[in-house]
Design a protein around this nucleic acid. Structure first.
Lengths: 224, 224
DNA sequence: AAGGAAAGTGACAAAATTGTAATTTTAAAT
DNA sequence: ATTTAAAATTACAATTTTGTCACTTTCCTT
């Protein structure tokens, strides 16, 4: 089931579209402007974004640019008729398609299908609390902002993110990340990496909410 | 459709099992011993491995250890009855389950389903020629051996691997990997990274068979 | 409350990554 | 065959990553 973000300030249109798309089997989030859109985008990996470029706060374009800065998610513009200039500018900012109001809901669905066909397959994302990992790009985002991890930090995070809730013993983690052949690393190496990773992903590294210590047993990571 | 590797030296049993599992919708590769098994493992990401531990060449255990050194793929032992000691040793080497010969094919299918249930979902792999990328681990293998890429090399490779056959202009690549905000990097930086990546993944970096130069236009990568 | 094991911290050298510059090679077009 | 732009190569400093050590803090047990 594809996740769609609808950014539209006309409340009527937003709710009728949400209802229609939901009935078509989509998982729809409605946002009424920039602020709400960003907060959704930071937390969720959408499969398609429907964006009204003539938002009353005038920020349709900046939302588009912001999204393109961090993702290749398909973007479809909803434009008012006679707004040709905007449309052209939109394509330059990386929109994938546009549809002119008023439009038939059926046509919108057709365009969503078309836009998502390519990406749905390869789009593989993981989340861990406010951390989002785009494994098809090897990129990690913290509340929407990309953060840069070293190779080992990335692998450590991936291990936790693809096994949410699992408890990993320190030995197991060292095995997974460091043991090649019969070489061993200092036991403290892991502790240091946990610290470094926490420093990059946790809001309060001293009181970690993502990677939890289970004293005597190991570490585990959970979503909230 | 799940991919299964069957390592069994009894030709009769191998072919009858292959036939049966294929009819159940699995994609089965049969290997008669260590050599053949390794060559398959190096090239393909299997969803489950069925391993006769009492191979005539006596290498069932070393195959198991070898696989565990590079993958978490579920391994099911096929043991001769009365071979309890081997079974215990097998579990210590990381086997997921075992089944004692003679067994009913239906039961084997049940165990395969059980063993693959967890991993099938998260198992996400990409290949590019002899290169295999396990995106759930951030690990890259070249003919079965893990190779270590830097963060940027990894992202560059991922870009090619998840868009096989696509031509990328140099500008597009620089954009994808380096452009954050409005900062630009030296145009040659890309060339150097292409070279470094080729050095690690190509058999003959001077005559690249994976990442191809399209003079004047950019680069593209294909499978063979 | 004291002792001790487990985990965390800060700092350090060695090694690897990263970006750039200077130079050479390659391949297409004249 | 020359020319020339594009790409490849080599080499080099700056920065980052990596693994370890010595030391501190935390938390469980007695």
């Amino acid at each position: 089931m594809a996740k769609i973000l609808l950014v539209e300030d006309d409340k009527e249109l937003r709710s009728s579209l949400t209802e229609f798309l939901s009935s078509e089997g989509y998982d729809v989030c409605g946002a009424d402007g920039q602020r709400e859109a960003y907060s959704y985008i930071a937390q969720t990996a959408f499969d398609c974004i429907l964006l009204d470029i003539s938002l009353s706060d005038g920020n349709g374009f900046s939302i588009c640019a912001h999204i393109r800065g961090m993702s290749d998610v398909p973007i479809i513009f909803l434009t008012a008729s006679g707004d040709e200039g905007s449309t052209v500018a939109g394509f330059e900012l990386g929109a994938d398609d546009y549809i002119t109001k008023p439009f038939r809901p059926r046509e919108l669905v057709a365009r969503i299908k078309n836009a998502t066909r390519r990406t749905r397959i390869e789009h593989q994302e993981l989340t861990l609390g406010s951390i989002r990992i785009d494994t098809t790009k090897g990129a990690v985002f913290r509340s929407g902002e990309e953060i840069f991890l070293s190779a080992l930090e990335y692998r450590l995070l991936l291990l936790f993110a693809s096994n949410k809730g699992s408890l990993f013993s320190r030995d197991k983690l060292i095995d997974e990340l460091w043991t090649v052949g019969g070489e061993f690393v200092n036991d403290n190496t892991l502790t240091v990496y946990i610290k470094r990773l926490r420093e990059k992903i946790e809001d309060d590294p001293q009181a970690p909410s993502i990677i939890k210590t289970v004293r005597g047993l190991g570490y585990k990571a959970e979503d909230e």
